[in-house]
Design a binder for these strands. Sequence first.
DNA 1: ATAAATTGCTATGTGGCATAGCTTTTATGT
DNA 2: ACATAAAAGCTATGCCACATAGCAATTTAT
Lengths: 142, 142
Amino acid sequence: MAEDALDAQIGYNLRRASALALNDFAVELSDAALRPVTYGMLALIDEKPGIRAAELCRLLGMKSANMAPLLSELEERGLVERDDHAGDKRVQVLNLTQAAREAMPGWRQQVRRHEDRFLHRLTKKERATLLRLLRLIWTEED
Amino acid sequence: MAEDALDAQIGYNLRRASALALNDFAVELSDAALRPVTYGMLALIDEKPGIRAAELCRLLGMKSANMAPLLSELEERGLVERDDHAGDKRVQVLNLTQAAREAMPGWRQQVRRHEDRFLHRLTKKERATLLRLLRLIWTEED
DNA sequence: ATAAATTGCTATGTGGCATAGCTTTTATGT
DNA sequence: ACATAAAAGCTATGCCACATAGCAATTTAT
């Protein structure tokens, strides 16, 4: 494998691995009609009840322009509630509905199954290493 | 970080890291008007002169339906030549043009710069580990 | 010889992401 | 205090990667 062969590029391999994961996610979560983005939104709202929409955007690296219609979709499906913020009229505060809170454990389990499937060739230790390195790539310095 | 928190999911972190890499690639290669996909095609044709279009699809994990217009684009830009195969009239054989062959080293260097930038927090050893683990994820078993 | 597979293609839909531009509300600076 | 800037949320729109369906030509398999 030459110095800068395509195969030796991490960016290329990131793209291929991510595409495979995306694909596998779709297979596992198709019945729940959740895509990685929408699942990510629900999971974060679940982990941080009452989170502001802008903060959700920031944490997920999304633009509010793209978040807005997805929130509307989740709201219409009865999974997310948008409430006004007490002190700041610009702010929306997000929470899962009761139904979504009850469904989340099952969805999280499906995601665990999905991860176990597409990572089946990696040991527990290798998965921990991979997680650490990936976070080094995309998270903020400091 | 909880067991199956979003942050702890490798799929999510893959997606974030890949998105950042894509973004950085676009910055570095915008002047060459090459995207990751088109660069990948050129790089592989460069590494395997005379490769068949179907084989290129297979190696890059693309459908020929999506490859065809990209090959047309690269051909119109004078970077790729499509020739008929001697023994099989269905097959197209691909080569870089002289211009593309001369430009490739510069592009490869730009990609190297790009990788050094978005991987600057990883040591050489960590990069090798990451490469190995990513390849374990998406390449065929056996 | 007929059926099946391969190759390359067009047309078309979807999903993620980007920018531009807008309104409303809050924060800042003189 | 008032003007300006910034933040929050939104709509509209376009680009790109990728998927499926279907087609024609050719080659391989039965």
